[in-house]
Design a protein around this nucleic acid. Structure first.
Length: 287
DNA sequence: CCCCAGGTGAATA
DNA sequence: TATTCACATGGG
């Protein structure tokens, strides 16, 4: 069992970070969080400024939870109006984790027109059927399958992971990633808009999924994913002229351009704070 | 039986 | 370019 003592000037809230819906492979178990990240089965809990964990070393935990990112500075930079100010006060300590690009891409391919529990179920099914079993502090854990592993799986088998009409998209993405092992490094080196266009060439990856992958895996903090909740929130608070229902490509552009301009280079953090403060995760029952 | 959920691709005008 | 529609699945 290892520990990290958090610096008092660097807030971190493990519960908010793992329950806000950015990553799909963590579960609460008693006072602990259990999950698989980058092939490690990790168990971790927070008691005030003390983080206790096993299954990974301190370097990995710091890197994954971005504990060395200057969060107060980030939050100060996006704190541009009373609404985001309230969200920041409510969710201070929420950090964007550093996800694996392939797992993140595949996960958000599974996240269209559905809900978070269903996405978790799909990802878990793919992992336990086609991932590698890992020994760790708890049982029944599997790595998320490599692209090669999923590329070798038949459509019928993937369909059985409850992917539905997304099955072909995951197959194609797995083929893409296995044929170009350096894809993630190549995209990470591109300017944001180019990286975005590149991801959107994949079938099943539209603006929303691309922005999620860019934000959660590649650390493009200017990415501002616009899902149904964010559309509502931004529509209510900042852009009261929005048509309301369907998010047309033009509307999506308008919302993300506004948000990037309004919140600045860490707009993605603003997105996550707005989502967390007013989104379903909190209403659905967090304390 | 209807509507909704971290949308997207394809057909249509 | 802008609208419209289907899409698997599960839960309310």
């Amino acid at each position: 069992m290892k520990t990290i003592v958090l610096r008092p000037d660097q807030p971190f809230d493990l519960d908010l970070t793992l329950s806000c819906g950015q990553a799909f492979r963590w579960e609460r178990a008693g006072g602990w969080w259990q999950g698989v990240a980058d092939g490690r089965a990790v168990r971790i809990r927070q008691d005030g400024s003390l983080l206790t964990f096993e299954g990974a070393d301190e370097g990995f935990i710091r890197d994954y939870f971005r504990l060395d990112q200057d969060l107060p500075a980030v939050l100060a930079s996006i704190d541009r109006d009373p609404a985001i100010g309230a969200a920041i006060r409510e969710c201070r300590g929420l950090r964007l984790v550093r996800q694996d690009p392939w797992e993140c891409l595949a996960s958000y391919l599974c996240a269209t027109n559905t809900n978070i529990p269903a996405v978790k179920r799909r990802v878990a099914l793919m992992a336990e059927r086609y991932g590698r079993a890992i020994d760790g502090p708890f049982s029944g854990t599997y790595t998320f399958p490599e692209p090669e592993a999923l590329a070798g799986v038949s459509r019928t088998e993937l369909w059985d992971c409850k992917l539905g009409y997304r099955t072909d998209y995951v197959c194609e993405a797995a083929r893409f990633a296995s044929e170009e092992p350096g894809w993630a490094k190549r995209i990470a080196a591109l300017p944001f808009e180019e990286a975005r266009r590149e991801l959107m060439h994949l079938r099943g990856i539209g603006p929303k999924a691309a922005d999620c992958v860019l934000l959660f895996a590649f650390g493009f903090f200017e990415a501002f994913p616009v899902d149904v909740w964010i559309r509502r929130i931004v529509g209510e608070i900042y852009l009261p002229g929005l048509t309301g229902k369907g998010c047309t490509p033009a509307e999506y552009e308008r919302i993300r351009r506004f948000s990037r301009d309004h919140f600045g280079e860490y707009a993605g953090y603003a997105q996550e704070y707005l989502y967390c403060a007013r989104g379903p995760a909190r209403r659905a029952g967090a304390p």
